[in-house]
Design a binder for these strands. Structure first.
Length: 1046
RNA sequence: GGGCCUGUAGAUCAGGGGUAGAUCGUUGCGUUCGCAACGCAAAGGCCGCGGGUUCGAAUCCCGCCGGGUCCA
């Protein structure tokens, strides 16, 4: 920034000299040529403590009045303060500076200021340095920024830098300040897309004011560079000053801390409540806090390490130890913080913020919970609301807070309760978590601490304390909260695609006559399928109201309009085709009236429902969102508890009364500032419209800035039917409703549901609740009875069936099919069976597919029966799966035809394992082949048959048998009653001429067994290697074939 | 606006694909002149709702409803 920006005539004419601070190298202006430093900590330290800089002491209200009347006297108009919740802005939640009141439209020049020049004392809230509040002696979350603003434009300058500095100088002189002690430190300012030269006004080491000369706006590739961004001069340039009210009061008193200066009464009352002796008039005691404030003024005290450094410095200067100092100071600092926070809450709640877990409401909750935590530290049992009330009563200048007191009381009580619940839940959870780590003999890891805070809201301090009690160490780093912040990835702003259009604003016919359905217009531009007209009746999407649909036509060509958007006043019609129109054409437009009318009804109804909700629920109700469509609308409202059924009905009734009154809907275009003055910020329920003129819609007592289309009289809305409420966030309730024909349809739908329900039960709708209750009760009873009966049935069945048990080596095996039983019955019966130690029950049913339950008694399990394994195997046989525990298991499948086979298999499996039958002899096998289907007695000679055993285990043998005509493969499985013929191969596939032609190969499988592939079809047959020591298996088979067939 | 956690008996919570559990509370019985305490027993569950996957879902997946919490 150019140096001459600061070379003001005022400085030159009044004997100022410009100097450079040897410490920080910044330039500053002073009347006293001997002044060495810039006057700003850390270059200098506080000198005003104990040495007030004004000629008399002021309190908050006398200081404010002195300031405002000074500027009134000097040609400024006094303007009322704005709320601390920035309702007129959508980029910030809280009012952080007086200039925020006039952003964005006044500062951009679009809207004239309420007065020019003006003066204001604007309460502001900044939560950036929460940790330092109380500790530094000077930080506050809430402060009043006294200011005078002057909005200049090229050719119309009210005043600029010289006059601004002169006013400041004069004010300080009026207050009795020694002007030689004042320095103006050069410090260019930038923020929020604007920038400009600025001076900080320093007295006694304290920054009392900042004078900003905002005359630059951020422009890509601009010619002036500040802090890495480029800027250009603006056509309108603004004097933006900020005088800290609390700091002025502090400076006038020279108290050790700002808190003692600004809220002596509340500080003292809280000290009493906390049982702290706070004799700030005692010089020694005061010295401690004075020193603390002085050191804190020149250093960064964020984080434990820095804080400890501060403590050490203070302890050294007053000759004590850090421990003793902490013991004395911490409780007092906590009281300071509570004083500040409760004031902050008074403003937040007083201005109508509803605590919540989103947006501004979250910030209110954050402060509220922090305050409760601090109170607990001091063991202050007084309800928080008492302290907040104390604050509110202390502000005679804000009567509006007292009006809201009842609501505030309720909110705070609810919040206190909620927090207590959270802490209680949290404490339990921490104990449990702590014990978990105690068992493992580990420290509780940081990740756990973060998890507890992030997902359950348990402050790490509490976690640490509770864990300590449970005997578990916890590591809590200074940087804890920033670690949490890191966990949350930042959402990227999406680039909105914008058409840059250099076209005149579209004439909005829908505002001129809301009954019209047809119009003619000239085509100004066609971009692919998007058409821009000189005028239109099509309402573009906005304010929660969807775009109109309809047609644009010319001669015999018709295009459907599918979407309509407003691009900075140019309305763009998106059609379903990109041919047909060109620049200069005259087209005829027609809107889908049914759709539009439904939107209009829902839109006007939204205003009415909002108003009704306000009168039923209270003044704190604020719309946070709304959406309309043809068949329904929804409205989101701030409210601190659930809407009850009675309230719901009452809102519906009031809304319909408003309809029946057939009130006219008034629409006026008004100057923004005038409208704000007349109606207040309640105007901005549906968001903040841009522009100097805003469209004001009045229905009954509801007044809102609204750009939507509306019916002309409430009677035209027709019925309003509230459908439901939903809590979309803590502190935000959503009401869904339908209006007009849609409402009738909704009622009809509900009637139909009711009718269907009562028809089904064959009762009239009025008996439905009783009948349903009766049915439900009966159903419960029957269910219980059913269960009891099943148990009884199981018992009976078991007694009846025990006799059928098959004895296998001491086991009693039952295999029964209960075709119609469900799984539960099977389980009950099986459980009943398995009470007998030696029983294994295999139960099956075919209701809804195959169900299998196997249970094994205690002794059976000891012998190695595993129900889970059995079920898993058996289920496969019926095309399903299953499993369970060794004692009891369930399974099932889809193949009902295989139930019997599956059950037999189960029994055989047990037999094989516990009572294996002997293998069949070689003779038996031959006999078996002879009786098989493939055997041809007329041709085959079985007395010449050869037999080869290829596989042999304790449960299974595989045989190959060869006659003069065929080779057979037989599997003898001891789990099966009989051997099985698996396949056979005729001679023609084995022999070609006088040679064995079939291919026989082996593959490796395991140590003792291998695979043999016989011919093209029979692959992967197991063979035991030990059976083929002498000759390889290939040779053995070939030999056998040769021997019998050649 | 985004993220994470969560919903099981009246309460507090375990369990986490295979017969729904504990503690407290409730009721009954025993002991007692009575209460408390103790002992024994019982009642009490659409495992939030609806889909899906599976032979089988309280359990896994998706959606909805409800509760909690952190961040912007």
């Amino acid at each position: 920034m150019l140096d001459d920006e600061y070379s003001l005539d005022y400085f030159k004419e009044n004997g100022f000299v410009r100097k450079t601070c040897p410490k920080c190298k910044t330039n500053f202006w002073t009347r006293d040529a001997d002044t060495e430093f810039c006057g700003d900590p850390p270059c200098v330290s506080y000198s005003f403590i104990g040495a007030p800089v004004f000629k008399k002491e002021y309190d908050i209200s006398s200081m404010r009045e002195a300031y405002l009347s000074f500027f009134e006297k000097h040609g400024h108009t006094r303007v009322d303060r704005y709320p601390v919740i920035a309702r007129w802005r959508d980029d910030i939640y809280l009012t952080i500076a007086s200039i925020a009141d006039f952003q964005p439209f006044v500062t951009s020049g679009l809207v004239p200021p309420p007065a020019n020049p003006l003066t204001i004392s604007q309460p502001c809230i900044r939560l950036d340095d929460l940790d330092a509040v109380g500790r530094s002696g000077r930080h506050l979350t809430t402060f009043e920024m006294m200011a005078h603003h002057c909005f200049n434009s090229r050719g119309n300058e009210i005043y600029w830098k010289d006059r601004t500095v002169e006013l400041c100088d004069t004010l300080l002189a009026d207050l009795g300040c020694d002007l030689n002690a004042v320095t103006y430190k050069e410090n260019p300012w930038a923020g929020g897309g604007n920038a400009g030269p600025s001076v900080e006004v320093m007295v006694g080491g304290l920054e009392l004011a900042t004078l900003v000369f905002m005359d630059l706006k951020q422009v890509k590739g601009g010619s002036i560079e500040i802090k890495g961004e480029t800027y250009e001069k603006m056509d309108n340039y603004i004097v933006d000053t900020g005088y800290g009210l609390e700091r002025f009061v502090w400076a006038s008193k020279g108290s050790p801390t700002i808190y003692d200066a600004v809220f002596p009464k509340i500080v003292n009352e809280l000290m009493d409540l906390a049982g702290i002796e706070h004799s700030i008039d005692n010089p020694e005691y005061a010295r401690m806090f004075s020193q603390n404030a002085r050191f804190a003024g020149v250093m960064d005290i964020s984080g434990q390490a820095n804080l400890l450094q501060l403590r050490k410095k203070v302890a050294d200067t007053i000759g004590t130890t850090v421990e003793k100092l902490q013991k004395l100071m911490v409780p007092v600092e906590t009281v300071y913080a509570i004083t500040d926070h409760s004031r902050c809450l008074a403003f937040m709640l007083g201005d109508g913020i509803i605590p919540s877990n989103v947006k501004a409401g979250y910030l209110a909750r954050l402060v509220l919970r922090r305050t409760l935590r601090l109170m607990k530290e001091l063991d202050i049992r007084e309800p928080l609301i008492e302290i907040i009330e104390m604050q509110i009563k202390n502000f005679p200048e804000y009567p509006e807070f007292r009006e809201r007191l009842d609501t505030i009381r309720e909110i705070v009580a609810l919040e206190e309760e909620k927090y207590a619940d959270t802490i209680e839940r949290g404490t339990k959870l921490v104990k449990k978590t702590a014990l978990h780590f105690k068992d493992k003999k580990e420290k509780m890891p940081l990740g756990e601490l973060i998890q507890l805070y992030d997902t359950h809201g348990i402050p790490p301090e509490i976690t640490k304390e509770v864990a300590k009690e449970a005997g578990v160490e916890v590591e809590l780093p200074d940087t804890f909260y920033s670690l949490v912040a890191k966990k949350h990835s930042k959402a990227q702003d999406e680039e909105t695609e914008g058409l840059s259009l250099d076209l005149p604003l579209t004439r909005r016919l829908y505002y001129e006559d809301s009954e019209q359905t047809e119009f003619t217009a000239k085509v100004l531009e066609v971009i692919e399928n998007r058409i821009i007209l000189d005028r239109t009746l099509f309402y573009p999407e906005g304010g929660g109201q969807p775009a109109d649909h309809g047609t644009l036509s010319m001669e015999d060509y018709v295009a459907n309009v599918a979407d309509v958007q407003n691009m900075n006043g140019v309305i763009v019609h998106e059609t379903d085709s990109d041919i047909g129109f060109k620049k200069g054409d005259t087209v005829k437009g027609r809107i889908d009236w049914e759709r539009r009318l439904a939107h209009m009804r829902h839109h006007t109804a939204t205003h009415i429902v909002n108003e009704s909700a306000k009168s039923v629920l209270g003044k704190h109700i604020w719309q946070t969102g709304a959406q309309k469509s043809t068949d329904r609308a929804r409205l989101d409202l701030t409210h601190y508890k659930r809407i009850t059924d009675d309230e719901f009905k009452e809102i519906e009734l009031l809304a319909n009364r408003a309809v029946m009154k057939n009130q006219p809907v008034h629409i006026d275009w008004m100057d923004r500032i005038e409208a704000e003055k007349k109606y207040g910020f309640v105007l901005y329920q549906g968001g903040v419209p841009p522009g100097r003129e805003i469209r004001i819609l009045r229905v009954g007592s509801d007044v809102e800035a609204c750009g939507g289309t509306h019916v002309s009289n409430t009677g035209l809305i027709g019925p309003i039917k509230l459908i439901k409420t939903e809590r979309i966030q803590d502190g935000v309730e959503r009401i869904e409703f339908s209006a007009g024909e849609a409402a009738v349809k909704r009622v009809q739908e509900r009637d139909e549901l009711l009718n269907k329900a009562s028809d089904a039960l064959r009762v009239s709708p009025e008996h439905l609740p009783d009948t349903v209750n009766r049915f439900f009760d009966e159903w419960k009873e029957l269910k219980k009875e059913n269960e009891r009966l099943k148990a009884e049935l199981a018992e009976v069945r078991v007694k009846a069936m025990m006799g059928d048990a098959v004895e296998i080596n001491g086991l009693k095996v039952l295999s029964t099919k209960l075709p119609h039983a469900d799984v539960e019955e099977l389980i009950k019966a099986a459980t009943e069976f398995s009470k007998n130690d030696e029983v294994v029950a295999i139960l099956a049913s075919e209701s809804g597919g195959v169900k299998i339950v196997v249970a094994a008694g205690a002794r059976a399990q000891k012998m190695g029966v595993n129900a889970g394994v059995m079920v898993r195997e058996l289920s496969k046989l019926v095309g399903g799966g299953g499993g369970g525990k060794p004692g009891i298991a369930q399974g099932g499948g889809t193949d009902i035809a295989k139930i019997d086979k599956m059950q037999a298999r189960g029994v055989n499996w047990l037999k094989a394992k516990y009572q294996p039958r002997d293998f069949h002899s070689q003779q038996d096998i031959i006999e078996f082949v002879r009786n098989s289907e493939d055997y041809n007695p007329s041709k085959e000679k079985f007395n010449q048959a050869e037999v080869l055993n290829i596989f042999n285990t304790s449960l299974q043998k595989t045989w190959l048998v060869s006659t003069n005509e065929r080779m057979y493969c037989i599997l003898d499985d001891t789990a099966e009653a009989k051997p099985q013929l698996r396949w056979s191969i005729p001679k023609r596939d084995l022999i070609d001429g006088n040679k064995v032609s079939i291919e026989i190969k082996t593959r490796e499988y395991k140590e003792k067994t291998g695979y043999v592939d016989i011919g093209p079809k029979h692959h992967g047959w197991l063979y035991s290697k030990r059976l083929f020591d002498k000759f390889a298996i290939e040779d053995s088979i070939k030999n056998m074939i040769t021997k019998t067939m050649l």
